[in-house]
Design a protein around this nucleic acid. Structure first.
Lengths: 212, 212
DNA sequence: ACTATATTTCACTATAGGGTGATATAATTC
DNA sequence: GAATTATATCACCCTATAGTGAAATATAGT
């Protein structure tokens, strides 16, 4: 067998992501990671000291969470005069898509409510930072701060979407009356359902803050 | 020591609730339950066959979830003509309170997103049944079915509240910018925040469905 | 080719958890 | 009060997982 420490370390770090997505945070143990990487688990302790350090290395390098730019891409540049309602809805749909695209994030979020872990901490930090940046960017975009209603509403919908996504992860459980275990169509339905609700809410606000 | 099988079984069943609330679904193991009950863990297998049966016995007896009547208590009897917006807000606040009052429910909900378990199944069944009954009762109350917007909105807020409650369970994490680990005041703030958001949303709907 | 070193594997320890069979002891029956 | 039975404990098996030290082996330098 070829011997190359750097490559082996990399294989281990990558295996963390694979196991995490396949087995969830609960199944993320030294043996599983080493097996996936095709090396002996002793190497985890030789090269990283302990399991936690390996997880941290993975967590810091991986694309675990959205960025404010990702959710707002192209919004400022558009010539069309966008109203708040449309932007909020757009952000929420992109938020949902960003979770769909990141199985590792879903696995960690699921673990967050039940166990603490380096990855949970890392993701929480990224999330807090980007949420602040998102709200900052929206403030700039609107030329003034969001109202309390808007902040609570946006946060609520983000939580609802997150929770729905996590419940759907296991499969079998219905969310908004939709069984998310059954594939593409189900996700499209969930997206539509959330858009419907979000639009209704944001339209209500717009009506309040700028009654036609 | 006094010997009484019935009493011992009861002590074990009660210990399930105590351990669940103290340690969470993850810490709910035979040794911990037996220790809490003050008996040998072998008795779990002698009297219940296996751990799962003991958990089921607890889950079926315990007050794990709200009922439709609990969330709607007194609403139909009121002489005041209540509008949909007020009733929805009331239901959501009672929903939050019902979760606060049931630490065991929170512990199981937290476990739901990461592991399967008899208690998870039992709670899911109770939840599905009562949610249907709640929507049925609201339909009767309003003299007609809820709109799609209303169903999605109500469900969204319930999910948001649930998720917020679960994140608050661990402590340290902030929810809606509020640290729920710090006691009574924090919960009151969360309640107020949710009311604010919910009212804004439901007012929006009312405006749409019955524009003044 | 020989040696030194870095890389890797193997066999092991220790702890925790679900579960079981033999044994001890309290309560009941005669 | 002795024998029987129900109740409870103890010591154990088995599996999984974090972690370790000694031995094996590929690679690099000479």
């Amino acid at each position: 067998m070829v011997r190359n420490r750097q490559l082996t370390e990399q294989k281990l770090v990558e295996a963390v992501g694979v196991v995490l997505e396949a087995e969830g945070l609960g199944g993320l143990n030294a043996s599983a990671i080493a097996a996936r990487a095709g090396v002996d688990k002793a190497l985890i302790y030789k090269y990283f000291g302990n399991l936690e350090t390996l997880l941290r290395r993975y967590g810091e390098g991986a694309d675990l969470w959205w960025t404010a730019e990702e959710l707002l891409e192209g919004v400022a540049e558009t010539g069309i005069k966008l109203n708040r309602s449309i932007i909020f809805s757009l952000v929420l749909v992109r938020f949902l898509k960003s979770l769909r695209r990141r199985p590792a994030a879903r696995a960690i979020l699921a673990g967050e409510v039940i166990q603490n872990n380096v990855l949970v901490d890392i993701l929480a930090a990224k999330r807090e930072r980007e949420t602040k940046r998102l709200f900052g960017a929206l403030t700039t975009l609107f030329g003034g701060p969001l109202s309390a209603d808007e902040i609570v509403g946006l946060t609520s919908y983000m939580h609802a979407i997150t929770y729905a996504t996590l419940l759907g992860r296991g499969g079998g459980r219905t969310v908004f009356g939709i069984d998310l275990g059954t594939g593409e169509l189900a996700w499209a339905k969930l997206e539509a359902a959330i858009m419907t609700g979000a639009k209704a809410q944001f339209t209500g606000w717009r009506t309040k803050s700028a009654p036609a």
